[in-house]
């Protein structure tokens, strides 16, 4: 992939606060036209990365590239094509939603007043157009932040926890807003979030980091697909013990067994579910149901973050490790 195909490219980004390493030669890239999730536990370095990308923290030379613009030199050119919300958006309390967008928007390019109304409408704040920002609820503030970031029709949207402080209905609406923007305005989106189910529903690409290092990145479908399949096997209560013994004996296809309320949850080798069923039926066990379970991002995330920052799971990770070592050595 050439550099122009990336919306974001971060190379060996390093940051320390005092003695504490926050970003440890972080590398990742996000392709254009993706809705990418930026995941990591608290203190992983997500917000610091976003702040450095947007120039709120001093940016080292040539470590970050946004839409082909190298930072910090091309920061203003990059920001003209980017919309961003970092943490809780803050606007002038004594100005209305409309006035805030008008004034802050004038710093991008001459304000198109119909566009202000359009974005206010888009985020569902039409009734609060003339309401002072100081009287807004947390959810409304988040929406106005998103409206502000959309004002100049950006090619890339960078959002830090866009649904934080929102109720479930607000989250669903925000997801719809972002999907709508992605479809209608062809905007690439890069968002950090703790809400893994939200990310799984919204994003097609993810970057997972921990302790300032990348654990994995790639398209969600690729990350979730693995050599294993997960199934729930339901059997009657009196066959539980026998079923367990049979499954344990089939070590070559059953990788793990966990007791579930009405049977077991098992990890199987790919395309072996019919064999498990056959074994159990032949042994005279009445299999009530064999239910395939979809692997969730949450499981992957938990596995990765629990293993620690030195664990790399996907094939791309081997390359990542080598690259990081190289860049670290280069830095030194």
């Amino acid at each position: 992939m050439s550099n122009s195909d990336y919306a974001i490219k971060v190379t060996a980004l390093h940051k320390m606060f005092g003695d504490k390493t926050v970003l440890d030669y972080l590398n990742f890239s996000v392709p254009k036209n993706a809705i990418a999730g930026f995941l990591g536990p608290n203190g992983a370095g997500k917000t610091t990365t976003l702040r450095m990308m947007l120039g709120l923290l001093p940016t080292p030379r040539d470590k970050i590239e946004l839409l082909g613009h190298k930072l910090p030199g091309d920061r203003t050119s990059a920001l003209e094509r980017i919309g961003a919300v970092v943490e809780n958006p803050s606007f002038i309390d004594t100005l209305s939603a409309y006035e805030n967008l008008k004034w802050f928007g004038s710093l991008y390019k001459p304000v198109n007043y119909s566009r202000i109304h359009e974005v206010i409408d888009m985020v569902g704040l039409k009734e609060a157009t003339n309401q002072n920002f100081g009287t807004f609820s947390t959810g409304m503030k988040q929406r106005l932040g998103v409206a502000f970031s959309l004002l100049h029709k950006p090619e890339l949207l960078i959002l830090d926890e866009p649904t934080s402080g929102m109720d479930p209905v607000g989250r669903v609406q925000m997801r719809e807003i972002l999907l709508n923007i992605h479809e209608k305005e062809k905007t690439s989106i890069f968002l950090s979030s703790h809400l893994l189910d939200e990310v799984q529903k919204l994003c097609n690409y993810v970057v997972i980091i921990n302790k300032g290092r990348r654990l994995t990145e790639g398209y969600v479908s690729d990350i979730l697909s693995s050599n294993e399949e997960h199934y729930e096997i339901r059997v009657s209560d009196d066959s539980i013990e026998r079923t367990k013994n049979i499954l344990e004996a089939a070590q070559n296809i059953v990788k793990s067994i966990t007791l579930a309320p009405r049977g077991f949850v098992v990890d199987l080798e790919n395309d072996t579910s019919h064999l498990v069923n056959e074994i159990l039926v032949k042994a005279g066990i009445k299999v009530q149901a064999l239910i395939p379970l979809e692997q969730s991002l949450e499981e992957t995330f938990m596995k990765l973050t629990n293993k620690g920052s030195n664990t790399f799971v996907s094939s791309t990770e081997t390359t990542q490790t080598t690259k990081e070592k190289e860049s670290k050595e280069g830095e030194k």
Partner: peptide, 14 residues
Amino acid sequence: GRGYMKTLLLTPVR
């Protein structure tokens, strides 16, 4: 303190 500066610096001003 209030975060206005952050919003301002997210725009392409130097």
